[in-house]
Amino acid sequence: MRFELNDGNLRILDGKSSKLLDTIPVDSRYQKVFKTEQIGHFLLIVIKNEEEEYEGVVYDLNLRRVLLKNLSKQIHVHMCNFESVSPQNLFLVFDAGKGFVRTKYVFDLSKSKFHVFDDMRIELQWIAPRTFIFYATPKEGETDLPIRKDDTILEEKRIWRNGTIHRTKTTRYTYQD
Rank of each mutant, 00 (worst) to 15 (best):
R172I: 03
G97F: 10
M1S: 01
I127E: 02
E142D: 08
S110V: 00
D144G: 08
V93Y: 09
N162V: 01
F114G: 09
I147Y: 11
E52A: 15
L124R: 09
L10M: 03
W160H: 11
S110E: 08
D60M: 09
I47N: 00
R121Q: 05
G141E: 03
R64F: 01
R148M: 13
Q88E: 10
M79Q: 14
I159Y: 04
P146F: 09
Q88C: 06
D14F: 12
N6C: 07
V116N: 03
H78K: 10
I147K: 09
H76V: 10
I147W: 08
T171D: 08
K111H: 01
K149W: 05
N70M: 07
K111C: 00
V66D: 01
K139N: 09
L68T: 07
E140W: 05
R64L: 14
V116L: 07
S84K: 07
F94T: 00
I122H: 13
I159V: 08
D119K: 13
Q176K: 09
K35E: 02
K169S: 11
G99E: 10
F114L: 01
K73M: 08
E156A: 10
Y30D: 00
F82A: 02
L20F: 11
K32E: 08
Q38P: 04
L13Q: 12
T168V: 15
I12R: 06
R102A: 03
E156G: 04
L68A: 08
G40N: 10
D22F: 11
V93A: 06
I127R: 05
D22M: 03
T168Q: 14
I47W: 06
T164D: 13
V58R: 04
R130Y: 14
E4K: 12
L68K: 10
G15P: 03
K48Q: 14
D151C: 07
K69L: 02
D60A: 11
D95T: 12
E155Y: 03
Y54D: 00
Q38K: 02
K16P: 07
E123T: 04
E83K: 15
T164G: 09
L90D: 01
N49K: 03
V33K: 10
N89T: 03
R11G: 06
F100K: 02
F91L: 08
R2H: 07
T143M: 02
L61P: 08
Y105E: 10
E156H: 01
K48E: 15
G163Y: 01
P25A: 08
I153R: 14
L44H: 06
I47P: 02
T36K: 02
S84R: 06
K69G: 02
